[in-house]
Design a protein around this nucleic acid. Sequence first.
DNA 1: GAACGCGAGTAGACACTGTCTACGACCACC
DNA 2: GGTGGTCGTAGACAGTGTCTACTCGCGTTC
Lengths: 196, 196
Amino acid sequence: MTEQEQDLRARLVAAGVELVAEGGVQALGLREIARRAGVSHGAPRRYFPTHRELLAAIAQQGFGRLTDTLAGADALTATTGADARTRLDALARAYLGFAAANPGMFELMFRHDLLEGSGAELRRTTLPLFLTFVGLVSEVHPRSDDPAAATAALWSNLHGLAQLRTWGSLRLITGDDSIEPLLRATLDAHLGPAAR
Amino acid sequence: MTEQEQDLRARLVAAGVELVAEGGVQALGLREIARRAGVSHGAPRRYFPTHRELLAAIAQQGFGRLTDTLAGADALTATTGADARTRLDALARAYLGFAAANPGMFELMFRHDLLEGSGAELRRTTLPLFLTFVGLVSEVHPRSDDPAAATAALWSNLHGLAQLRTWGSLRLITGDDSIEPLLRATLDAHLGPAAR
DNA sequence: GAACGCGAGTAGACACTGTCTACGACCACC
DNA sequence: GGTGGTCGTAGACAGTGTCTACTCGCGTTC
């Protein structure tokens, strides 16, 4: 089954994934996606009544890939018998790595103005991922009375790092563009110094 | 000097500030801004060669207001003789308060795809603000060897909280839409528990 | 005082966008 | 051999950002 033969819906989403990787969110015009998929500009309407729903489907693909990336990174460290602190370290790096490797997709995924309406469904996708985060944070902070809040705070920190790095302000502040000291400061603050 | 009499450049920026508060970034069409300012769609070109430069000017206005808001909040607590930890607490709340009160403007300010080209100038605006942050963090962590990194990490955390709150995911996680526990967790993590 | 020049804003054209609607080709089924 | 129904095409429509004449009013200059 070649790429030409799969149904148009999947081809449109695949074209969007390509385009956002090449040219960012701006490249995700409805007609441009249709062109890339090799159909006329009216064809997507059969599967996505509106442009935003097509963008939401592309973003959902992005959330799937992020989930896979994080799950893969965690599986790698978990099999080595690493403790929760080390696993969270690897997860944090994987999160920032995904954002750095797919800046356009990462931006699309959190552009609530473009995804309005489908936001609830997308948010639900992230829930199981978040719960594994909570479990690991609970292991690091066994006496915490609100591990969900601690996890959300940590996630917000990682997310802010990812966004401000692509915005360029972190480079201005720290001088170089290495995020390593900031990541270390973040993890130390939320999880305590690494025991090494 | 009434609003009609100031020069068009300022009127266009003012119209943009109004529009982004009412309808978000999507409402900032070039023609719509011109309509609001009471001129034809070709008039802005005299002052802003391109749409993006007009958006950058509006965003710069936003950075000015954010700086004023934070400076005002800090001045308020500083005069009461509060310590650095308390001042940072107030600054953090002011930052999140600004983002919540001006969601459209806040989004515009960090939309690097729209502000590309003028980004460097905008980033420079935030620098003095950041330096006062660094000073306060240095007071809280007198033995830190890299207060700039610690400050950038804290700022990233606040920024992530602001963005994820408007995205709606924090509400999904914590149940209600109060970020108070998350803010407390953030401040405790980066600055140590509040001494009260 | 009249002519000139120039800055400021207008109006229209252009290519492009997302949405909507009518139409045609194709295929399974009775 | 018709007959629906699905799927994609093609064109119209209003709207966008950009570009290019053009007009109008005001100050300067001869």
